[in-house]
Design a protein around this nucleic acid. Structure first.
Length: 527
DNA sequence: AAGAGCCTCAACCGCAGGAGC
DNA sequence: GGCTCCTGCGGTTGAGGCTCT
């Protein structure tokens, strides 16, 4: 039995009366005993001073001795908590920085609600702080009908590739500068949960020049039906380089994933409701990845959708959206301009549409939370259209994806690998999850057609999908990937951290967030 | 101005695991 | 092995402040 139980006091009015009275701290008889009613509630400055003084003299630990030796009428747990959360040195106070927020997103996606572990990676922050932050954020987003992870965090990762070309972890750590010192390390990941020859990753793993460990792909969140599905795609530079001549620019990332191999990339991305395409800047020859998200709102780097140089762009996919809606949605994320700017000088350099900034930017530019709130306002009017069908194809007005795809078709022909060791598309690892109409994920059957129901573009992916549909017609109801996940479990919203499920879907998700099913990162021994 | 509702965050609670006996 | 104590973790609560109507 915890000592708390011993000293439990009436939590009614008496407690409040005691808190500020001299009775507390001296025991009811004016003398502190083990049986004394220990004080609860807010700490006073006097108590704080006593505790600080005690810890200075005796060090941390042995908290139950604090009460005995210092005269504090607080239980050991309370003392420890007070010290850890408020009194210990080097505590950061104030709002979370954008970098911290981003890291929290990432860590939460990977760890789940392991607040203490997260706190260990966020110097000066306490688990309680992080927990509170996350919980309030969850409440907001759930209330707004949005998923828990903002696209921005994902895009930050992608954008960051341009700058430093490290993994997402390393991007964050580079920006913050403190994580390496904490031993936080971007792990190399072996996708052991995936069978050989099961697709995209197996392709890489079997490619002599590419280490699976060097690529990590995180997809953090399912789309809620009619909502957005942020996605992280990370890779580590190095062993991939010979695969597609990585130059450290984002195109390398996207070329790696993108139309290099019989549209497989599109397929895989389509499976996630995302697609990548490229716009080439005539001046610097840089390819600017256009990031399309299926079933999502849109975001950008601050440019309007009409901007030629939209570095990151989402399109409204299946649900029909007007151009006006699209524009506003695209910009909703752009509101957090500073976020992207902070990680991507390329994006910083992009010309911005004055209209965008004046009309579409979020009224607040303070951080991810503000963006989230703004997203909520933007999305609240679109839920209805979202519900209209993630399975329908939509040609987004103003969409430049088609040309981008075409461009990629030619630009990346040299990277095509007609005899890729894949044996099947990269998407297959995701496509392979067929979910019955009942919503159970246990009806899993490998099936190459499970996901292409999400169409992206008439002239791009849809063509591919048409081919796919011609080849095989599903005989059972197929949920699109996010829907399947949602139907199968409360995975990302609740339990995606430890990945306790043993379904193929969870395998996939575990992989996507950089975990294997043991909950630990797999590190590769570099050959 | 006042009340309702919302948000934040400090603190509490129960539980689990490790250490020592 | 069983018991107790201590510590840490994660979920929850509720007071106080803020915003909106």
């Amino acid at each position: 039995m915890s000592q708390n139980a011993k000293v439990k006091v009436d939590n009614g009015g008496l407690l409040r009366d005691l808190i500020d009275s001299d009775l507390v701290g001296k025991g009811r008889g004016g003398e502190s005993t083990d049986e004394a009613v220990l004080k609860k509630g807010p700490w006073t400055s006097t108590e704080d001073a006593i505790l600080v003084d005690y810890v200075k003299k005796h060090g941390e630990g042995n908290w139950n001795a604090v009460q005995k030796n210092s005269g504090l009428s607080r239980c050991g747990k309370s003392c420890r908590l007070r010290w850890a959360n408020h009194l210990r040195p080097n505590l950061k106070k104030g709002a979370f920085s954008i970098e911290e927020e981003s890291l929290i997103f990432e860590l939460q996606a990977k760890m789940g609600n392991k607040w203490a572990r997260m706190a260990a990676l966020l110097p000066g922050r306490t688990d309680n702080e992080i927990k509170n932050y996350w919980n309030t954020r969850i409440k907001r987003r759930l209330r707004a009908g949005l998923p828990l992870h903002p696209v921005e965090g994902c895009m930050q990762a992608v954008a960051g590739e341009d700058q430093q070309n490290p993994s997402f972890h390393e991007i964050n750590t580079a920006n913050m500068g403190f994580l390496p010192s904490c031993g936080y390390h971007s792990p190399d990941v072996v996708f052991e949960g995936l069978n050989a020859g099961q697709g995209f990753l197996s392709c890489i793993s079997e490619h002599d020049e590419v280490s699976t460990s060097s690529l990590r792909m995180n997809c953090l969140e399912p789309t809620q039906f009619g909502s957005r599905m942020p996605c992280m795609i990370n890779y580590q530079r190095g062993s991939i380089s010979q695969y597609s001549s990585f130059s450290g620019k984002s195109e390398d990332l996207f070329s790696f994933l993108n139309p290099c191999d019989d549209d497989r990339d599109e397929k895989i991305i389509g499976s996630f409701g995302h697609s990548f395409s490229f716009d080439q800047d005539p001046a610097d020859k840089n390819l600017l990845p256009t990031f399309h998200v299926q079933g999502s709102h849109s975001f950008s780097n601050g440019n309007s959708s009409s901007s030629r140089r939209t570095a990151l762009k989402l399109e409204l996919p299946s649900f029909q959206a007007s151009e006006a809606e699209l524009n506003s949605m695209w910009i909703s994320s752009a509101s957090n301009q500073t976020l992207l700017e902070s990680v991507d000088p390329l994006i910083q350099s992009l010309p911005r549409s004055p209209k965008v900034e004046s009309e579409y930017l979020s009224p607040q530019n303070n951080g991810l939370l503000e963006v989230l709130v703004y997203e909520a306002t933007q999305s609240s009017t679109k839920n209805q259209s979202h519900d209209k069908g993630s399975n329908s194809f939509a040609q987004t007005p103003g969409d430049t994806g088609g040309s981008s795809l075409d461009f990629c078709e030619t630009q990346f022909d040299e990277y095509r690998d007609p005899i890729s060791p894949l044996g099947q598309s990269e998407t297959s690892i995701f496509n392979d999850y067929r979910v019955s109409a009942s919503g159970s994920s246990h009806g899993y059957q490998p099936h190459a057609d499970a996901f292409p129901v999400l169409g992206l573009k008439e002239d791009g992916l849809n063509q591919f999908e048409s081919r796919e549909r011609e080849q095989e017609t599903p005989t059972e109801s197929i949920y699109t990937w996010p829907d399947a996940l949602l139907a199968s479990s409360d995975w990302f919203g609740q339990r995606y951290g430890p990945f306790t499920c043993e379904t193929p879907i969870s395998d996939s998700m575990a992989f996507l967030v950089g975990y294997d099913l043991t909950g630990d990162y797999k590190r590769t021994a570099e050959a």
